[in-house]
Design a protein around this nucleic acid. Structure first.
Length: 268
DNA sequence: ATGGTTGCTTGGCAA
């Protein structure tokens, strides 16, 4: 029996709760990690999720912006929220869940988008993005997260490969695909023995997207997407990875998020 | 080079 872990930048969980419930019903992940919940913990739709069978919740929210959460059918232990860049932003939450009798740590991230100008000297938001990534690297190195079975998911707001964007050359100067941030993300990746789960299932020669801008009309025919959402597995989980489902059709649902759900299956 | 859309809020950011 596969254990399914999904990640979805929901862009306001309260507004899109009907879509969340639709996804849970149709796809039945064991664990759903959300980003950009955009509400305080007390405003989080905990009751709806519990009623849907997701009784175990780990929430790290704030008013209006950011916010992450983990909803699970199974008990969550060792719930942990980290603060990055001393800004008080709700951009990380972790919890441990038992997968086939083995404890697996799940880290759910919302990396800063970084603003419009890809220069840390001119743009504090881009500087923040780079600092955030450096703190991730330090934490993963210092605490040796990947020495225990771990899954790192979330909206990392970076599309690292040429095939992770609709036009590599056109996006080299666009925040999310600039060489400097791709290099910083590579350092995070190399801080642990991570495996890029999506790219073990879809070859790097093939274009792969999880996000389509609201600003692009005809998102589907234009298909100007980017792969901003990621699932990384510690190497000891690689052999358990049996499936990947990127629900592109969710981008066409009524009042959609600009990101779609990404789900992996682990078969212990 | 710019604008395009959406959400949280009601003016203007952030994405």
């Amino acid at each position: 029996m596969a254990f399914k872990i999904a990640t979805w930048n929901i862009n306001s969980v309260r507004l899109r709760m009907p879509l969340v419930l639709r996804y849970l019903q149709s796809h039945g992940p064991d664990v759903l990690c959300l980003q950009e919940t955009k509400c305080r913990d007390g405003e989080f739709p905990s009751g709806d999720l519990r009623a849907a069978g997701y009784e175990h919740l780990a929430i790290n929210g704030q008013k209006g912006y950011h916010g992450v959460a983990i909803a699970s059918r199974h008990p969550l232990t060792r719930i942990d929220k980290r603060e990055f860049c001393a800004k008080g932003d709700a951009r990380h939450i972790a919890a441990t869940v038992s997968v086939g009798g083995r404890d697996v740590a799940i880290h759910n991230f919302y990396v800063p988008a970084g603003g419009d100008i890809a220069d840390p000297e001119l743009n504090p938001k881009f500087a923040h993005k780079l600092s955030f990534l450096d703190e991730m690297t330090a934490l993963i190195s210092d605490e040796k997260w990947a020495e225990t079975p771990s899954v790192l998911v979330g909206d990392l707001n970076i599309a690292p490969l040429e095939t992770d964007v609709w036009n590599h050359k056109a996006l080299l100067k666009v925040v999310s695909h600039t060489p400097v941030e791709v290099e910083r993300l590579r350092r995070v990746f190399e801080a642990g023995p991570w495996v890029d789960a999506l790219r073990t299932q879809v070859p790097p020669e093939q274009n792969l997207y999880t996000w389509w801008s609201y600003r692009s009309p005809n998102w589907e025919t234009a298909n100007k997407g980017r792969r901003l959402d990621h699932v990384w597995l510690s190497a000891d989980l690689k052999s358990s990875l049996t499936d990947l489902d990127i629900l592109k059709e969710a981008r066409g649902w009524e009042r959609p998020s600009d990101h779609v759900p990404v789900m992996i299956s682990l078969t212990p």
